[in-house]
Simulated scan of single mutants.
Amino acid sequence: MTRPINPFPLPGWERTPMRPLRPWERTAHRDYYVDVDGAEAAFQQFQQELGDLAGVLEDGRLVLITGESGCGKTALLNRCADWTTVALARRGLKGVVVDLTGCLPEDEELSIQQRLEQVCDQLFDRLVDARALRPEEVEATRGDRDNPQRVFPRLAHLLRDDVVLLILLPSPNELLDEVVRYAKQLSSPRVLFFAESAFFRADDIAELVRRTEAWVPPVTLLVGKLETGDQHRFAKDRLLRHTDVGTYPQLSDQAVELLGKICQSVAMLQRILHGTYERKLTSGLSYTDTDLVTVDDIRAYLNGLGMQP
């Protein structure tokens, strides 16, 4: 017998509905990407630029994903990392993903050099835990664990022969200067670095390419705002997924229209849809596959947050 469910949380993250897709860790997420806000075109650009991964294996690469807050940068970054691990596996190589996005203190001002040192220090422990380093290099490198000038250029030498490293960097703090440092100093064969920022603009990217022209240029991917029809496409995708495991109402046409007007980012859309369905589910209101989620339901949820649609 099916039970009433909220169709909007991601598999395995029912209690944390706002976490982005992370397919390299949860393979069930691979099928949850929807072609909204230009993310599909950006993903295809990434695939084309990396090609057969020969460039990554020979020189390494930096991937920078830009776009406004909530537009799906992290989900795209994770998708690119997952695709790379799968492509590497086809070549008999092991892609090791090291997520350092939350490794820096939020309440402390650090210089670029201090940030790089902390990233390097944290990276060493993660590589040891993942058994990605040559055994003889673990102790030999321990004394330099917080020295990016020593560690990053030698990463390919430190790694096991079958390992390719994918490092998810913290969001750049001083933007252009920090990313240039990443592009110049962190470059190493068999190492792919990812970073994201909500503050880069076209002029910044052009300047970044100019200042790194002596090195392999970064792959720069742009994710935009939701476009007309994206809200409906996203909601329809999610509402079609779980009909075999539970029951839930559909969205009224007027509710879809309202979402198109008020949701500018995929994060906002996910939050409103999940919250509206959760409120209706737990409030004791009608919640069957013959009911509808209406404009009034969305407004009631937003009013509870102190927001006006």
Rank of each mutant, 00 (worst) to 15 (best):
L53C: 01
L50A: 04
S265G: 05
A75I: 06
V119A: 10
A28L: 12
G102V: 02
F193Y: 11
S69I: 10
E49H: 01
D146T: 14
V209R: 12
G260F: 10
S197R: 00
L258E: 13
R241W: 14
R126C: 04
A54Y: 01
Q118N: 01
L93M: 12
P170N: 01
L269H: 10
Y248M: 06
V128Q: 00
W83E: 07
V96G: 04
D121C: 08
N147F: 14
L77N: 03
W215M: 01
I112M: 07
F194P: 02
T141S: 14
Y301V: 09
R142K: 11
L159M: 08
R145S: 03
L186A: 07
K184Y: 11
A195W: 09
V191C: 11
L302N: 13
G102F: 07
W83V: 10
L64F: 05
L305Q: 09
P217C: 00
L281T: 04
R22M: 11
A214K: 04
R90T: 14
N303K: 11
T290R: 07
V219I: 04
G306F: 15
T220S: 09
I298C: 09
Q308H: 12
V36M: 02
S187P: 12
G102Y: 12
N6G: 06
E207H: 12
D35M: 08
E213S: 11
H242S: 08
Q270T: 04
T2R: 13
Q185V: 01
Y287I: 02
A41D: 08
V128L: 07
V98H: 06
R190M: 11
D129H: 08
T276C: 05
I272D: 15
P153A: 00
A198C: 02
L133M: 08
N147R: 14
A156W: 03
R211V: 15
V295L: 13
T288I: 00
E137T: 14
P9F: 05
E174C: 06
E108I: 10
L281W: 08
M307G: 07
F124G: 04
A39T: 07
F194Q: 00
A130G: 13
L77E: 03
G275Y: 06
F234K: 09
Q114Y: 10
R241A: 12
Q250H: 15
I298D: 01
G55V: 03
G70N: 05
E227H: 14
S187I: 09
G70R: 05
G55H: 07
R271S: 05
D162N: 09
A183T: 06
D59N: 01
Q308P: 04
G260H: 12
K94N: 11
M268S: 15
Q254N: 14
A140N: 15
I298H: 09
E139H: 09
K184W: 15
A54H: 01
R3Y: 13
E40P: 11
T276S: 10
S69G: 11
I5F: 08
E49C: 08
L208W: 05
Q231N: 13
R154A: 06
P9Q: 02
V293A: 07
T141H: 13
F46K: 04
Y277G: 10
I262K: 06
L53T: 04
V293I: 12
T228E: 14
V179E: 04
D177P: 12
R233L: 07
E178V: 05
L104H: 05
R181H: 01
L281V: 02
L21S: 00
L10F: 06
I167K: 06
L100I: 01
P11L: 10
V180W: 10
Q118Y: 09
E136S: 14
P189M: 02
V98Y: 07
A54S: 10
T101H: 11
